[in-house]
Design a protein around this nucleic acid. Structure first.
Lengths: 217, 217
DNA sequence: GAACCCGTGGCAGCTTGCTGCCATCGGGGA
DNA sequence: TCCCCGATGGCAGCAAGCTGCCACGGGTTC
């Protein structure tokens, strides 16, 4: 069975994958240490084209933190996210490029070598399944790009901290307002201000952010 | 080059790996969904022997939470840890058995099939490297067995983690439910379960707890 | 097949949260 | 004094969230 193929050099990779990439049906996942491969002009065209064609498939990209090291990387990842890909950053070093298409075909990249970088393309269910499950595990525990990029700490005035404590206690607005000796309306105004300060769209999100930032009122 | 071999059935696997396993020099890593394969008597002998010979190598074992589902599993993992292996529990489903020896040889197991389960053994650096790096990423974010058993963190299943992420994204229930492909009712059920798991009285409180615990889905 | 269990989803009614609008109040400043 | 301003709070209407109830479908058990 010829379900394992070794590819030598980027050029061969491109010609071989062009057709594959345009036939993605459901899912395209990719784990990589950096943006080296696909940020090159020729490759970009292929990969970009695939995304732009706006299939209904899901695209997931998982990178090491080092992919964000330079401005170019951040830009590129931002652009990917804008085009609908889910982008996450893992806590550790990842392989040099690993791709799984529709859970039936995997591509793994090796190290640069004389005569061109080596790639392995396989459709063996055992291999693809194993790689996919490992990817899934790594993905599951990685951080969303936007969360990763946000690290700032908004400073909150005394009032907001009181409100924060009340919210953290789990009380309803009514109880909290009574305890703080203010009207329901004012309390909610405070809450809205707090959400704005934390740049949160929902109370849950605000709580999460507060927790992450170690704010405790 | 014959650096990829397909193995059919557990018997062949054992005969082939016996020699390999006793030649481990530096590291033996293993990711698996459950304890099926190696908890069988014959296999246990091989694996156990390897460990008992007390090489200087490091042994790392990564399992899905389901490996702890029954008492037998807990015992087995405890025994492994006692014999010096590092055991961790990942948050998500893992492949059906993936092994990497000394970073130079990988074994991936497929699903049970007529004629015996199929295994793939490879020494191709590209494959091994890719699998190893993915394992590393999954390992890095998994929880130590003892910590997991102590249960300071509420055990959230994959579903709860997805919901956690959705909530953390700030989406409304309606959009979140749609994105996750479930009904509004079910989504809210999940949210309610999550709140219960986090022992929270409000979404804000749940978010705060999740943030404090470093849960990110 | 029948009897069940479980997860799901629709519906309904209720609570809680959100916010625009306006009335009120208290404290400067012209 | 009068006016302005910002903060407050009541109200109303709407959006969002919560939960009990019941029905349906897919497994499992007997």
């Amino acid at each position: 069975m010829t379900d394992i193929v070794t590819i030598r050099g980027d050029l061969e990779l491109l010609t071989r994958t062009e057709q594959l990439f345009s036939s993605v049906r459901e899912e395209f996942v990719c784990a990589a240490r950096d943006l080296e491969t696909w940020s090159r002009p020729a490759a970009r065209q292929v990969a970009g084209g695939r995304l732009r064609r706006g299939g209904t498939h899901r695209t997931r990209k998982l990178y090491s933190p080092s992919a964000l090291a330079d401005e170019r990387g951040r830009e590129h990842l931002g652009a990917l996210a804008d085009r609908g890909a889910q982008v996450r950053i893992a806590a550790t070093a990842l392989p040099h490029e690993t791709i799984v298409v529709d859970r039936r075909c995997a591509i793994l990249a090796g190290l640069p070598a004389p005569g061109g970088r080596e790639y392995t393309l396989t459709t063996a269910p055992t291999l693809v399944g194993g790689v996919y499950a490992l990817f899934e595990a790594a993905w599951e525990s990685a951080t969303d790009l936007d969360v990763f990029l946000r690290g700032e700490q908004p400073h909150l005035d005394a009032g907001s901290r009181t409100v924060l404590r009340a919210l953290g206690s789990g009380a309803t607005d009514e109880t909290a307002a009574r305890e703080l000796g203010m009207s329901l309306r004012t309390y909610r105004r405070r809450v809205a201000e707090l959400l704005a300060a934390l740049d949160a769209d929902s109370r849950f999100q605000a709580g999460m952010r507060a927790g992450e930032l170690g704010l405790r009122g």
